[in-house]
Design a binder for these strands. Structure first.
Lengths: 217, 217
DNA sequence: CTCATAAATGCATCATTTTTGCCACACGGT
DNA sequence: ACCGTGTGGCAAAAATGATGCATTTATGAG
């Protein structure tokens, strides 16, 4: 799991970020001051650091100096919006820059961009309380692992990648089975039902009459 | 194998450190007083020295003076927590400072940081209580050596480098055997099972139906 | 609008097929 | 002879798909 360190002196901000990134499938830790940050970075490797500039003790720029040799990507977070600060941060080797107050969706998007740039992408899909780690080929529902067969897993991934979109029976079948769809077979239905049961999706994975199925989250 | 010398007049402390660092794959020796320490350091090279300040005979600072020209990194261990002691130790050239009582996890982490700083990192993989030293081609389970055959070792390294990731049978086979995978062979399974048994990984090295295997730690 | 009807989907059960676990033993190099 | 390795065979486990029937839905005739 990808590990992200959040360094910000305002606990509520840390928590906000933590909640959103955790929901997106990342493993987050947060600290409120610079020295703690350095201790943690030394103790365990992180894949990404979100760093506030204004910190008690060592400020963000100091920490940046320390982090740079470790080649861990850093996104700065700050209330400052002046160009010179932005430039200073990027010169120090930051990968990106977020200005408070920021939109959480934007935050997650930028995190993903930076991680992709560093090839630290685990392919993680989320929908409600379900998390799918495509590398591990593991599925978690409310934090607990769910064991799926291949067909079920294939369907799951398709649905998760197309949340709230109705998928044609033919398209589903051909992508999971790699075979042409036979109109009068109960096979697809059957597997959809088994998936519904295992995921507790009796109400979420709905049939679209004459079309196929849709995952509603 | 990386060699670490522990210098502390309290034998139980030495043993505690020894056990933990050994489990992490290091080769430890310990002595209880300063003069013995100097003798050992002269006799064989160490990669790192953990040095207690309060010692009978020559104290830690004296030993530090002696060690400094050898360019061996030193981590101080002490009950003193005053800033002036910390400064004194660091001025003498210590790489880090641990205050008793310390957490063993922290100890191991600091040791690793210092060794990394000195580029004394052997390629060591860890997963749970298993340590693999790729340079020495040695495997430890809970500190005890495990003897593996070539194929088993090859598989082990692949799994350890890809913890919690499902690996395809084809990929495993081709990387370890360097040969194309024959779908109906029981060879891979067999070696996976042998590895499971030797490592006590009956529950960790799981089959992913139709895909391959995954090491869960 | 109501209701019959056909089509589509839900679902339980069972047989079949595929995959994996694992034992015994054979082979070949040292 | 010993060790590492691989084969064959078989059992166990898991996944898959067919069948039959119930239930739901859409739709158009009345």
């Amino acid at each position: 799991m990808i590990k992200i360190l959040i360094v910000d002196d305002e606990k509520p901000i840390c928590d906000l970020i933590d909640i959103n990134l955790s929901a997106a499938g990342y493993d987050c830790k947060s600290v409120q001051d610079g020295l703690q940050a350095i201790d943690l970075i030394e103790a365990e490797p992180f894949d990404l650091i979100l760093l506030d500039i204004m910190l008690p003790g060592a400020d963000g720029y100091d920490i940046m100096e320390y982090i740079r040799p470790l080649k861990v990507p850093v996104i700065f977070i700050t209330a400052k919006h002046e160009v010179k600060d932005r430039v200073k941060g990027l010169k120090l080797g930051a990968e990106d820059y977020l200005v408070k107050p920021f939109d959480v969706v934007e935050l997650v998007a930028r995190v993903e961009v930076v991680l992709r740039r560093y090839n630290k992408t685990e392919t993680i899909l989320t929908a409600g309380d379900v998390v799918v780690d495509e590398d591990a080929r593991k599925v978690l529902k409310a934090g607990k692992p769910v064991v799926l067969t291949n067909k079920e897993y294939g369907l799951l991934v398709l649905f998760m990648r197309n949340k709230n979109i109705a998928l044609f029976r033919e398209s589903l079948y051909e992508k999971v089975w790699g075979d042409e769809y036979l109109a009068d077979s109960r096979t697809l239905d059957l597997h959809v039902q088994r998936l519904r049961k295992k995921m507790g999706w009796e109400d979420n994975l709905v049939a679209v009459y004459k079309v196929g199925y849709r995952l509603e989250i």
